[in-house]
């Protein structure tokens, strides 16, 4: 694994804003994003939410592959990239072009951390996602592994999912131990990614409200110059209609 210079990724050219969260399972990132979503909507913003591995087509395939245990590190990685590509095209770009705020629960950095731990080349997976646009804000919820474990065991889920614990990797027959080893390796990858892509690190051991206040403050600052476009589309249509001369073929 060689250290590589950060890829030159220019900011996206769209009028909307893309805000993403990253972190291991049990870091609380989804809770924080949900609360941010509520706040942005209460401010009158148009918000679109999208989630990792959620496109129907790919989800079914992943499920099938997991069931037969036929997924390899490479097919696992490619399936997630397919899901991402499809969501980028159908879910992320249109609202950004329309000037909306898009919130993404996990982004390409999840692949850079998890797929590399599963065994694909770090260079390859970065090239795989080279078509992705750079988020306007990327938050990383940093949490010690023991805190994540106690949250997941004590919380609503009560147990670990097979793949989330990396049980397919034969790290340990004990699911909690497997989770600890697997997710610790992911944490180590995230540490590199934070520097490489300048993610905003959040202390995810703090109280939910404290984290949310900090997040809202940062997002509020970043949105200062953001002008939600409303109604312009309709006006422009009317404007152009006056000049619309029917073409004769």
């Amino acid at each position: 694994m060689s250290e590589q210079p950060p890829l030159p990724r220019p900011p996206h050219p769209y009028p909307g804003k893309l805000i993403i969260v990253e972190g291991i399972d049990g870091s609380g990132k989804s809770t924080q994003l949900l609360l941010l979503h509520k706040w942005l909507e209460s401010k009158g913003h148009r918000v679109f939410f999208t989630e990792w591995n959620s496109s129907e087509l790919v989800k079914d395939t992943t499920k099938r592959g997991k069931k037969n245990k036929s997924l390899t590190p490479t097919t696992f990685s490619l399936l997630h990239a397919t899901d991402f590509a499809s969501r980028l095209y159908h879910e992320i770009l249109p609202p950004l072009k329309a000037g909306m705020i898009v919130l993404a629960d996990r982004y390409m950095y999840t692949a850079f951390a998890r797929d590399v731990v599963r065994g694909v080349s770090p260079e390859w997976v970065r090239k795989l996602y080279s078509f992705a646009i750079t988020p306007d804000m990327a938050f990383y919820f940093k949490v010690p592994i023991e805190v994540a474990i106690s949250r997941l065991l004590g919380g609503t889920r009560g147990q670990f999912k097979h793949y989330e614990a990396g049980m397919d990797m034969n790290l340990s027959p004990d699911v909690t131990e497997s989770f600890r080893i697997f997710q610790s390796r992911i944490l180590a990858q995230y540490e590199k990614i934070v520097d490489e892509f300048q993610l905003i690190t959040m202390d995810a051991t703090k109280d939910i409200e404290a984290q949310q206040n900090e997040m809202r403050h940062l997002v509020g600052e970043a949105l200062k110059d953001y002008k939600p476009r409303r109604g312009t589309h309709g006006r422009r249509t009317v404007f152009w209609r006056r000049f619309d001369v029917p073409k004769s073929e």
Binding site: L57, T61, R64, T75, L78, L79, T82, A85, L88, Y89
Partner: peptide
């Protein structure tokens, strides 16, 4: 892994360039 998925994707005719290539890459890798 992929033959059924690719059929379904083609029926939808909604493939963007990246998904298009990535679906084939996944099939190939499998």
């Amino acid at each position: 892994l992929m033959s059924k998925t690719i059929e379904m994707a083609k029926e939808g005719n909604i493939l963007d360039r990246w998904s298009f290539s990535l679906l084939y890459a996944t099939d190939f890798a499998d």
